[in-house]
Simulated scan of single mutants.
Amino acid sequence: MPHEQRMQEIKKQLEILLVNYFREQYPDFPKGKVVASESPDFVVKMKNKHKLGIELTRLNPANAVVKTAEMLVQIEFREELVEQMQELFETGSDEKLFVKFMFSDKQIISPERELAVRSKMVATIRAAVDGKDDGSFFHRILSGSDLPEGLEQVMIAHHPELKSSVWERSNNLGISNNVVDDIRLAIAKKDEKLRIYQKQQLDQYWLLITTDFLRADKNINLLNKIRNEEFESRFQQVFVLDLMRARVIPLIENIK
């Protein structure tokens, strides 16, 4: 299979996992069958014959914090550690998982501790997924004493449609300098394509913006700031799904 095609397949598998994550965390998600589609990404078919389209996009930090040489070295070390943890885990398991690692910037993992961190983290993940139901969506957030020093949080998720494991460093696209502007940009880009989605003549269209962890350098009360902002869109509803907090943040509700 060509590399590009394989990457597209993995992307769709992750989208299926993410829309199920959203459904689990959002109590007002409509009851119905979620069907993978194109333009929009998913259609929810409800018993009353209504159809809801859901489009997914990832929050891209267009205004990313500039990385120093020291930060780049640390990023390379962390990504190698994540890769090694995945390899170690997969030597004893064929579980297909989506795993996100949020490293601490206060407690840096030294090269001397790399082996111990790797071993403890893999054992912890194995214990966390032991006995899970392979036929349904599963997710767990690990934090605090569950983790070796140097890691703040780890998100583990699984869905039966996920055929390839994806293990990543959290916020691997970068950390935003202006989260609100980046959210506006994400909405604007998808609003431009809404007329394409509307060709399916669905009853509603929702936009789901996913992000690993809403984090910014200068905004201490970032979640409050986002909630207090006025966002505009032609989608009926717009949400942010914060993966590491397992939290849905409604941004826009245009239901009449």
Rank of each mutant, 00 (worst) to 15 (best):
V154D: 09
N172W: 01
F213I: 04
W167P: 01
K163N: 13
E192A: 13
A186M: 03
G174N: 07
N178T: 05
L207F: 08
H159D: 12
S145W: 11
P160N: 07
N171E: 12
E192G: 02
R184I: 04
Y197M: 09
I187D: 08
V154P: 03
D203A: 15
W206G: 09
I209Q: 05
Q201K: 14
S164T: 14
W206T: 04
V166H: 03
P160Q: 12
N177W: 01
S170V: 12
I209R: 00
N172F: 03
V166Q: 15
Q201R: 13
L147Y: 01
V154I: 15
V180L: 03
L207T: 11
Q153P: 00
R195A: 01
D212M: 01
K189Q: 14
R169C: 10
K199N: 13
V154M: 02
Y197K: 06
L173H: 13
I196T: 10
L207H: 01
F213S: 08
R184V: 10
I175Y: 02
L208N: 08
D212W: 00
D182R: 10
K163H: 10
L194T: 09
G174Q: 08
Q153I: 11
L147R: 05
R195Q: 04
Q153S: 14
N171M: 15
A186N: 04
V154A: 09
A157T: 10
K190Y: 08
D203Y: 00
K163G: 05
F213E: 09
N177L: 12
K190P: 01
A157Q: 07
L202D: 09
K189H: 04
R184M: 11
K189G: 09
T211P: 00
A186K: 07
W167V: 08
L185T: 13
S170Y: 03
L151N: 01
D182S: 13
Y205D: 11
D146P: 07
P160V: 05
D191W: 06
V154C: 08
H158S: 15
F213N: 11
I196G: 03
